[in-house]
């Protein structure tokens, strides 16, 4: 094989493998309609498969978190302000896990409609503020969680068209 042809072959092989990797990754992400997670209302409507590893996401409902005193068991409700999903989890929660904060849970939907999570990921929103501002907001009668939830509600037209 001449060096020129060899080089051409390398080009083609490189290109094909790159394209394959790109398409493969796309398909990998496309698995569940490209959405990373199901929302509680989708699960309530029976769109999510039972007893298969899926992800669900939404806001942690304020006042819903209850920790077991003796173990790492945690129970909380994930909400999209339309539907609710009850989640059981055993393990350490991420630092940013808070009531009123976004969350993505990885695990299986049980027959009884509860979600058994193997993994909990905190979902941050796009708002940032210094601690003093958050405190001032709190003193003015908003809790930062309220503020975040309100911001998320205002900013969520896509909830309506699904």
């Amino acid at each position: 094989m001449t060096p020129k042809r060899k080089r051409k072959l390398y080009v083609i092989v490189t290109l094909v493998s790159l394209a394959a990797v790109a398409v493969g990754l796309t398909l990998y992400a496309l698995r569940a309609n490209i959405n990373l997670f199901f929302s509680p209302v989708q699960i309530a409507q029976g769109e999510a498969p039972v007893s298969r590893s899926i992800r669900a996401g939404g806001m942690v409902k304020v006042g819903s978190v209850s920790r077991d005193a003796d173990s790492l068991n945690v129970e909380f409700t994930v909400t999209d302000y339309v539907g609710d999903l009850h989640v059981d989890y055993q393990g350490i929660l991420p630092d940013l896990f808070r009531e009123g904060q976004g969350v993505v849970v990885v695990g299986e939907l049980q027959e009884d409609g509860r979600f058994r999570a193997d993994d909990v990921l905190a979902r941050h929103d796009e708002n940032y503020m210094p601690p003093e501002v958050a405190q001032a907001l709190e003193e003015a009668g908003y809790s930062p969680a309220d503020f975040q939830a309100r911001a998320a509600e205002v900013r969520q037209p896509r909830e309506d068209d699904t």
């Binding site: 990754l25 490209i34 990373l36 993994d119 905190a122 941050h124």
Partner: peptide, 20 residues
Amino acid sequence: TWGTWWIWDARLTSMLILLF
């Protein structure tokens, strides 16, 4: 912040494709 360094969500995956 999230509790993971990587997840195959649409933003991260499309950014990885950009690198390729």
